[in-house]
Design a protein around this nucleic acid. Structure first.
Length: 432
DNA sequence: TCTGGGGTCCTAGGACCC
DNA sequence: TCTGGGGTCCTAGGACCC
């Protein structure tokens, strides 16, 4: 069957989620902050209209946000993740296949119906998601993923000026070319700031001009990735839906510190905590890893002297137990730590990752064999269980320090309740 | 004072092998 | 003076995404 691609995109997703559960937020400007309450990562329309850019540092905009009466919230990923899954379930009702591309976007394939009928299917999904979940979505449709993305952007632009309802089907040639003449090259999915600059220097400013460039030039200057993008803009699909998520290759846990950390001990505790959380994530996904790297950095904007370093190491065997990673993180800190700097961020990266089953015992037994390993695994399972019941960090290794003694802990002061995943945080309705 | 935290893919170049 | 021709694997760095 001939198919087309659709991109369904939740509008102002985090802000929309917050509004679903707190009616007082409807009609009120909202912004959601990154971890550490550092920058603005989601904005409602009102906040966008007031000129607050994506990624803006919160402290620079605090006063303006106050003036506009904005609600400022820490990010609540538990809530957003759950709502995201619910949106996907509704989209699957019409999709031939569905790829969850990010927390707030999904690619779908639909049968290649007439433009009018595609529009109807998409609009039905849009209305259903709005009515059942309270989340406004847009849908863009096209013959390739890249064109579906452009259709979605176009739906957004049209809606902003009061045209349409957030559903847009990419037209056929030659009207498609007219559309692409109005799309700035930097707005194309796959063209970031570096390629945008390069293309501008070549005098290429629009998607139409970009897709008209010779393949040899694109290939040479932008690798096969750029060439695929150009082909997709010409209507030739090069990217398929990714239906099974490929096994992850790396796993990073890192955080900026609430304040600078100078002591080796502080860094040691932070790395231990990241190692512990990384191992927890491995178990969550039934994976094991052997490679581990650690990094520390003072890196700040315009704030020398700066120092940044990382080092990689390896465990003796694949595992998902916390203790070996924590020990390794402590060991790895030694060669990279320099006294006298105020560190701003630290993290742990795991690699050489593979599924934990089927379980492979080394012929002669690894360093940890038999009963000892079994006990460790049971301990980890118990830790995960307690933390799932009572909240992350209820049980943890002593190496990462007591929460109240930490000098490096994260700021997250404005978080909303986990309305949909915690019984004790359910929204309360009162009648009068 | 205060600027997130994850990921992926591609290429070039070096080490090493026969 | 002249200095092969493949492979593979690994890593660093650059590009992109949300």
């Amino acid at each position: 069957m001939d198919t087309v691609f659709a991109l369904a995109d939740c509008q102002n997703f985090y802000a929309s989620c917050e509004r679903v559960f707190d009616p007082a937020l409807r009609g009120r400007p909202i912004c959601v902050l990154s971890n550490n309450d550092g920058c603005v990562i989601a904005r409602s329309e009102e906040v966008k209209a007031n000129g607050v850019p994506m990624g803006a540092p919160y402290f620079k905009w605090r006063e303006e946000l106050e003036e506009m009466g904005a609600a400022v919230l820490s990010s609540n990923y538990t809530l957003y993740g759950d709502m995201s899954a619910r949106v996907a379930r509704i989209l699957r009702q019409e999709a031939l296949e569905l790829e969850r591309y990010s927390i707030d976007e999904a690619f779908l394939t639909l049968p290649a119906l007439s433009k009018e009928n595609l529009w109807r299917v998409a609009d039905r999904l849009r209305r259903r998601v709005l009515r059942w979940l309270g989340i406004p979505i847009r849908v863009g449709i096209g013959p390739t993923k890249t064109l579906a993305k452009i259709a979605d952007e176009n739906a957004k632009a049209r809606k902003r000026v009061g045209w349409g309802n957030g559903v847009y089907v990419c037209p056929d040639e030659p009207r498609r070319k007219e559309l692409l003449k109005r799309v700035p090259v930097g707005d194309i999915w796959g063209i970031g700031s570096a390629y945008e600059k390069k293309l501008h220097e070549k005098g290429v400013g629009t998607a139409a001009a970009f897709r008209g460039l010779p393949d040899t030039w694109i290939r040479k200057e932008m690798t096969v990735v750029g060439l695929r993008t150009a082909q997709e803009l010409r209507g030739r699909p090069c990217l398929e839906l990714e239906l099974v998520r490929p096994d992850r290759k790396t796993l990073i846990r890192s955080r900026s510190f609430g304040q600078r950390v100078k002591s080796k001990n502080g860094l040691r505790q932070a790395l231990a905590k990241h190692a512990e959380r990384a191992a927890e994530k491995l178990r969550e996904e039934s994976l094991v890893a052997k490679g581990i790297g650690a990094f520390i950095t003072t890196k700040r904007f315009g704030d020398p002297p700066y120092y940044s370093n990382s080092v990689a190491g390896s465990l003796q065997e694949h595992t998902a137990r916390a203790a070996p990673f924590v020990r390794a993180s402590r060991r790895l800190l030694e060669p990279i730590y320099r006294d006298g700097y105020g560190y701003k961020k630290a993290g742990v990266q795991l690699y050489d990752i593979r599924p934990s089953r089927p379980h492979q015992e080394s012929l002669f037994g690894g360093p940890t064999t038999g009963r000892r390993r079994k006990e460790d695994e049971e301990l980890m399972a118990a830790v995960d269980h307690v933390n799932a019941e009572h909240g992350k960090g209820t049980v943890q290794l002593a190496a990462s320090g007591l929460p109240e003694k930490r000098e490096w802990t994260m700021k997250r002061q404005k978080k909303s309740p986990r309305y949909t995943t915690r019984w004790d945080e359910l929204p309360v309705a009162t009648a009068r």
